[in-house]
């Protein structure tokens, strides 16, 4: 990246990108106008870009082009897709919002069914199987930890949401122990997640400083030094 092999649009773009990076990083000093300005610019640009991509990559190929170029069967299929789409567009207007409910219901129903199927076949069966067979792929100690950790974590949610008042003291104590063990495993998992998020954020910070330094080194310093 040098100024020589860049067109004006890219140069301006790099300058804008550099500026927006500084604006956002200024949040380290505290919330300020530049930060808010940049974030609102970002939201507007992201929404606009998503709209463009959706129109170009979904709506036109699925709803418009088949009506223009497709055969009869394809047109019928497209019309059957178009009607719920138009109903959904009624959601734009608060007065006509209820018209879009059936289309939204179809969407929700499909999503619920897909989630159920995916959860059963993609997570529960394989993971239960893996949990049961931990001793095949691990030594006894690790297998025991894996098994205990999995079930105490799972039971933690159950016991957390449902506590009977008439439980016997022994059961209550056992429940408390299970909850505590489950909580400890969840803390370990969340600690690992936090470490991952932190590394990801650090990498983003490194990437941004790398971008800033590249911009300065390639564009600003040559211009300043003549």
């Amino acid at each position: 990246m040098t100024a020589a092999n860049m067109n004006l649009a890219d140069l301006i773009g790099l300058l804008i990108g550099f500026s927006f990076t500084i604006f956002i990083l200024s949040y380290i000093l505290g919330d300020n106008f530049l930060f808010r300005f940049a974030t609102h610019i970002f939201i507007g640009a992201a929404a606009g870009y998503a709209s463009v991509v959706t129109i170009y990559n979904v709506i036109l190929p699925q709803l418009i082009f088949p009506l223009m170029n497709g055969g009869q069967g394809e047109m019928i299929l497209t019309i059957s897709l178009l009607i719920p789409s138009l109903l959904l567009l009624a959601k734009i207007s608060p007065r006509l919002s209820k018209i879009g409910n059936p289309a939204m219901a179809i969407l929700v129903g499909i999503g619920a069914a897909v989630a159920i199927g995916g959860g059963i076949f993609g997570t529960i069966f394989p993971q239960v199987s893996a949990a049961v067979n931990v001793f095949e792929t691990n030594n006894f100690l690790e297998g025991a930890i894996l098994l205990i950790g999995t079930f105490t974590t799972l039971l933690y949610f159950q016991f957390n949401s449902k506590q009977s008042k008439n439980q016997r003291p022994a059961i209550v104590q056992a429940t408390k122990l299970i909850r505590w063990i489950g909580k400890a495993f969840i803390a370990i998992t969340f600690g690992a997640l936090f470490a991952g998020v932190y590394v990801a954020a650090l990498t983003a910070l490194i990437e941004r400083f790398s971008f800033l330094w590249t911009f300065i080194k390639e564009l600003v310093l040559p211009a300043a030094l003549g």
Partner: peptide, 14 residues
């Protein structure tokens, strides 16, 4: 995956 996904994805990996 990102480092933030790794822990939750580990049970699927093998």
């Amino acid at each position: 995956v990102s480092a933030q996904v790794e822990p939750i994805l580990r049970p699927f990996v093998g």
